[in-house]
Design a protein around this nucleic acid. Structure first.
Lengths: 348, 348
DNA sequence: TTAAATATTTGGAACGTTCCAATTCTGTCA
DNA sequence: TGACAGAATTGGAACGTTCCAAATATTTAA
């Protein structure tokens, strides 16, 4: 029933040329005569030829598969979904395709998917590593000459390229903004302490406090899971402190949303009663009520940037480890209390 | 520098056996002696062998690539992100990997990515088709014996399997619920009219109205983009009707959120002043304020179900078109006004 | 008109695996 | 000891492409 695959040889036979010529047409070589090219193309369409990249890849030793592996740690978090979309955009328009996998923060899973991707001959890998990923895990890839770009979370020690946002500067500007609004007791809420990103953001918080002439207090730093639930938990602890904070910078937007939930559950209105600033600027941030003041990192941009970097390395053939820090920008909305909650909506 | 790939032949040489034996070990054949197997495995580890699926796939004619193509129309919508995660779960644990692409509702892009996936020799395809996708677009795939499963949106006319949620029943129960709360003027807001899903949900709305003994009025049906912005727009039109509705069922959760935004912008509180019911139950639905009453379709479940169906067909070798409808369930939260907005939060 | 130059085409030989048929080992039984 | 079964191993020949070196066709220049 399902007839045998139509190959380059079938095309050759039908078009009255040799398979080599067909191959030349396939790769758009300028060596082949216009007439022949047209003829071959016509026959290909007619017979419904589909290119077998596997076979081609076998011959062209090495990194020509045009497959980019993308590994993220939590696709259900829209930050990472956006990032994947950003990667897909540039990867796709460069004629590559993306292999996307989700690790759910599991190191074992991560190892598995990376191994699987290798077997499939990926030309390069973009990864947002799961927590506690060992830098050595990507050694073999690099040794095999497969470019690797780490995004979002950096991997100290691994000799790979990375694209991370300027976490420190972002926090500095968030704290500065709150200080300028008159807040003195500013908390840092959420995040797992064992990640490099946490360290960076905390460092930014510290130097922001210092710069504003405010004291850094250990008890104003409350870590939690970097999720909505974690935010609820963190604000719960913050609110019962002897010397209550009046504002908080959060590890990320998910935490910030949780903090808002927690405030509301205690009949406090985020914005007017307590200032909240997030980090990431996920899509929901601007549509939320109150709209979230947050540090915008533009995940799609990171994805695009990472993909560009990777493609550059793939084309160069040599993977010079390079690290790029993307700029961030504080987006002032309502949750910090700087603006009244007045929204003009479209459609009326 | 980057030494040549280590192949099955290198392993054979180093282990003092033939390449055939190594191949046998690779596929876990019971024909090979325990001692030999151990030896070969050891050598493989030692030399850092990585399996070349491309080559294998070339020999094993046909659908053995263990790659599943997944095409979604909007990955930034968490509904689809969840769906992709569901697919990934079952696909991964079955030893397959997923090729994921985003079409952003572009038919051209969809065609491109599907073609690209074909070239890479996918074993099967799961697709949530872009709007206005031509059923014939998947003909060639099916003809080539590649199983295709359409999810979320159905594709009337295409002879492929599909997994869709029970849109009709979901809407019926949503309307029923609102009617029981005493609402008489219930609007249907949002969604593009040219999709099969819209038809189904609208049909559910109609029969729900009838069942409740309420009149169906054309002007209570207001379509819009199925997005947050679309929701804002739709409620804007609904609220100025001569005979204002007091409640609305929405095409999906995104629209419902937009409707809430639009209500608030007019100083109306969703839940108490106007009842809103969504559809999909995206993750944000339960954490939103007010928590969204919605029809839960469990996107991860659809993804899983679709993947299972696809794997079944791949293993069976024959693709019997089959269509499964997944049950939905109304989740009553706050936005319909049935419950007071009292939340007990964790962490205090 | 012919040699030289240029444009176009072409047969193999890879690439790394799996499969087949055939071979070589074991041990067992007469 | 020889024959025989079963277990274990093995050497090619594929698979569908690209690449190379070489062949052939077409122009150009003299």
């Amino acid at each position: 029933m399902t007839k045998a695959r139509v190959t380059v040889i079938d095309i050759a036979k039908a078009a009255g040329v040799s398979k080599s010529t067909v191959s030349l047409v396939l790769q758009g070589s300028s060596l082949v005569n216009e007439g022949t090219r047209a003829k071959v193309n016509a026959v290909m369409r007619e017979l419904g030829y589909v290119y077998n990249r596997g076979a081609a890849n076998l011959r062209q030793a090495g990194a020509k598969s045009r497959i980019i592996g993308v590994v993220v740690n939590d696709l259900t978090n829209s930050f990472f979904a956006e990032l994947a979309v950003g990667v897909d955009m540039v990867v796709q328009s460069a004629g590559f395709v993306q292999f996307l996998s989700n690790t759910s923060e599991s190191i074992d899973r991560q190892r598995e998917v990376v191994a699987s991707m290798r077997e499939h001959g990926i030309s390069g890998l973009i990864v947002s590593p799961a927590r506690a990923t060992d830098a050595a895990d990507f050694k073999p890839l690099v040794a095999a000459g497969i470019p690797v770009v780490v995004v979002v979370r950096n991997l100290p020690g691994a000799k790979v390229s990375s694209v991370v946002s300027d976490n420190r500067a972002g926090m500095v500007s968030a704290v500065k903004h709150l200080a300028e609004l008159g807040h003195k007791r500013i908390a840092f809420l959420g995040g797992f302490t064992d990640t490099a990103v946490f360290d960076d953001r905390l460092a930014g918080y510290r130097s922001g406090m210092e710069a504003a002439g405010l004291d850094y207090h250990q008890d104003l730093v409350i870590s939690s899971a970097p999720s909505r639930a974690g935010g609820v938990e963190a604000i719960g602890k913050a609110i019962v402190l002897a010397d209550k904070p009046t504002a908080a910078v959060c590890f990320n937007d998910a935490v910030a949303f949780g903090v808002c939930d927690g405030l509301r559950a205690r009949r406090l209105e985020p914005g007017s009663d307590f200032a909240v600033v997030g980090f990431d600027d996920v899509i929901e941030a601007q549509a939320a009520v109150p709209a979230l003041t947050t540090v915008s990192v533009h995940p799609q941009g990171i994805g695009r940037r990472g993909a560009q970097l990777l493609l550059k390395q793939i084309n160069a053939g040599k993977a010079e480890a390079e690290t790029v820090t993307t700029a961030v920008r504080l987006v002032v909305r309502e949750s910090c209390g700087a603006r009244k909650s007045v929204k003009i909506e479209t459609g009326l």
